[in-house]
Structures are given as C-alpha cells and as structure tokens.
C-alpha cells in the first residue's frame, strides 16, 4: 500500500518536472519583451516595443541553411471583467519572416502584413530590426468603451508549422526550437 502511494508520488513529481522542463529552457532561447507600451496617437492606440530575439545555435544553423523562420507578433486587447474572465475585444497580428540569401549573403526580413522587405548584412541586424516595433496600430480609440478598463497582451510565437515538415515533430519536443515569448501584459491608459 505504501509502495503504491510512493510510486504515485514519484509519478507526480516526474510529470511536474517534465511539464516544468520546457519552461526552464524557454528562458535560454526565445523572445523577451524588454519594453512595451501603448500610446494614443491621434485616434489610434499604437504600440512601441523593444523585443529581444535569442536564437539557438540550431535555429541559426537552420537559417544559414536556407530554412526561413517565421514569428507571429500577436497583440490582443482585453476588457477587464470582475466576475468573469476578461474578454478579448481586438486582435492585431503581424508575421515576420527571416530568410538568408547565400548568394547575396544577406538576411531578408519580411513583414508579411504589408509585404515590406528589409535586407541586413548580419543576423543580429535583422533580429534587432524585427525586435524594434514602433507605432504599430493596435486599436481605434472609439472601439473601446470608456466605462471599462482595457489592457493589451503581447505574445510573440514562433511558427513551428512554417518549418519544413521533417523538422516540425522535432520542434515540438526540442527546446532549441522553443523560440516564443511569454505573454506580456501592458495597460492601456486613457
């Protein structure tokens, strides 16, 4: 009986450890929101944020091998509710793709929302450019009810499904491919 109980306890600890493992590794590589803030510009709330992209050697190697990497910057606007979970009232999504061109020896950063392409001689330059978000239109002022409080949540997700097919299963279990950020909450000041 006691053996069974201790066995159950061991299983729980192991499961907890397994669940915690990705979290602990998530800090090594991925995306961190250094600073973010929403400000009201004319009729729009715009986002300015500084993100830090930290790529694992495996991811950098993949990029150098011609595999494009795609991130999604999602900004959700939530209305606070006292007795229920907060309501998501607006979403803004931007997809950023980095690709290496060996012929030109440049890194190409593409904002898939507007199709704009930037070219960088170094990967650091491309990542820095991708991490600098300035005046990104998030939500119109009149869309928000002045009676409620709102906040925005910034989440940068690495799109594993954009990877080549053989890499996808691995990317779900290998921490080298845990390249997303935690959710970052920033208030919307009226």
């Amino acid at each position: 009986m006691r053996a069974s109980a201790s066995s159950k306890c061991c299983w729980k600890i192991l499961l907890f450890a397994l669940l915690c493992l990705p979290c602990s590794y998530a800090n090594a590589y991925g995306v961190s929101v250094i600073r973010a803030g929403l400000s009201l510009e004319k009729r729009y709330y715009v986002l300015s944020a500084d993100l830090e992209y930290r790529l694992s050697p495996v991811a950098k190697n993949a990029l150098r091998s011609g595999i494009p990497l795609l991130w999604t910057v999602a900004v959700g606007v939530y209305r606070e509710r006292p007795w229920f979970w907060d309501k998501r009232v607006h979403d803004t999504v931007h997809h950023y793709l980095i690709r290496y061109h060996p012929l030109m020896n440049i890194y190409q950063l593409k904002d898939q929302a507007n199709g704009s392409v930037e070219k960088f001689l170094t990967l650091a330059g491309a990542l820095a450019a991708m991490g600098k978000i300035r005046d990104m239109h998030i939500v119109e002022l009149h869309s928000l009810d002045p009676l409620y409080s709102y906040y925005a949540v910034i989440k940068v997700s690495f799109d594993r499904e954009a990877l080549p097919l053989p890499l996808r299963p691995v990317s779900y279990v290998n921490t080298d491919w845990f390249l997303s950020s935690d959710s970052y909450r920033c208030p919307i000041k009226k």
Binding site: N61, R64, P164
Partner: peptide, 28 residues
C-alpha cells in the same frame, strides 16, 4: 543562372540540415 544555383544550393543545404530530421521523421 544565379537564382538557379542559389535555389539548388539552399535546397541542398536545407536537405543537409534536415538529414537527421528526415531520418527521424520517416522512422517515426
């Protein structure tokens, strides 16, 4: 010609990089 060479090179590099993943994926 340059595009073709670059495409082939990238493709080959990608395949080289995915070599183990391909094995794993097919084995899986």
């Amino acid at each position: 010609l340059a595009d073709s060479v670059e495409f082939a090179f990238v493709r080959y590099q990608e395949m080289t990089f995915l070599r183990n993943s391909l094995r794993l994926s097919f084995t899986l």
